[in-house]
């Protein structure tokens, strides 16, 4: 179980976190979604002891991350946003050091290493130096490393950033498997589909504040099931409708580009914050909301 209680983090004058609280239940997969600089990494860094909170407290399975550091750290595995493997060392050596850090015996390390390299489909790369691996393979090594000591809680900070869709899906399956093995997981991501596909619940984070915590389904249903994107003076406008027919009926005859599609988490995020999670096509960040409504924002 993960509990964040009023986490505040200041860097000089900027307040990166402005009182963040949430709870992730045992075995739950919780996605933490927010634009660049919203404080996702900072939250994870506090909970994994890489930095101290300016105020507030975090608990991992009941252990305070500031007062009972070692016990708290014993609970968790971490995949950081940037790759932090020893480039000059082999995959095996990297994992071995990690196992030692978590007090695993030699045989336990060897067994876990084989098992988790198998798990991320890299059993044949044990003796390869990390610097010879591609970005996707490095990510997989990081996932194997974060899981090999069988942590009860796993933090994944954008584990699929910069990977192609096939490898991304592969990594999703590793993450799902870890959850099925009983791990409590907190995952941050920019990829909307990732959160939709994996998460039991999603927290929207914006400028250091949590905007909402809900299941992906409930968030999307709150907008109605369908969206109509249409091009208006170079900007994309989006309207929402309860069913496909009403969306199609609203297609303006005089306009060029349009798409009718299912509502996704990005729509929910925009509706709640007025911002996009990830800069994508048509990224001016404008849109309209309400079921078929004409409510312009920004």
């Amino acid at each position: 179980m993960i509990r964040a209680a009023g986490l505040v983090k200041r860097f000089g004058k900027t307040e990166a976190l402005k009182g963040v609280s949430f709870e992730v239940g045992e075995g739950e997969l919780f996605a933490y979604l927010g634009p660049n600089g919203s404080g996702k990494t900072t939250t994870i860094r506090i909970l994994t002891n890489l930095t101290n909170p300016s105020a507030g407290e975090g608990f991992l399975n009941g252990f305070s991350v500031t007062k009972n550091r070692i016990a708290a750290k014993m609970q968790c595995g971490l995949v950081t946003q940037h790759i932090n493997l020893d480039n000059e060392l082999t995959v095996e050596e990297n994992l071995s050091i990690h196992g030692m850090l978590f007090g695993m015996s030699g045989p336990a390390r060897a067994k876990a290493m084989d098992e988790y390299l198998e798990y991320v489909e890299m059993a044949d790369r044990k003796k390869t130096k990390v610097k010879e691996l591609s970005g996707g393979l490095k990510r997989r090594v990081m996932i194997a490393r974060a899981l090999m000591h069988r942590p009860k809680i796993v933090f994944l900070d954008e584990p699929t950033v910069g990977l192609d869709p096939t490898i991304r899906r592969r990594i999703w399956s590793f993450i799902k498997k870890a959850q099925q093995d009983g791990a409590t997981i907190l995952l941050t991501t920019h990829y909307i589909e990732e959160a939709e596909f994996l998460a039991d619940r999603v927290a929207f984070l914006d400028s250091g504040k949590i905007v909402t915590i809900e299941t992906p389904r409930a968030l999307m249903d709150s907008l109605g099931g369908w969206a109509l994107d249409s091009l208006d003076n170079g900007a994309i406008e989006t309207s929402y409708f309860p069913e496909r027919e009403s969306a199609e009926a609203a297609i303006p005859a005089h306009r060029g580009g349009f798409t009718v599609r299912r509502v996704n988490l990005e729509d929910a995020f925009i509706a709640l914050t007025g911002k996009k999670v990830a800069p994508g096509p048509g990224g001016a960040g404008t849109g309209m909301r309400g079921a078929g409504g004409k409510e312009n924002r920004k």
Partner: peptide, 17 residues
């Protein structure tokens, strides 16, 4: 290892006094 490879974080996140 700290500034370039970020390995120091691996030690900081480990249950190591």
């Amino acid at each position: 290892s700290r500034f370039y490879w970020h390995i120091f974080e691996e030690f900081q996140a480990a249950p190591l006094a």
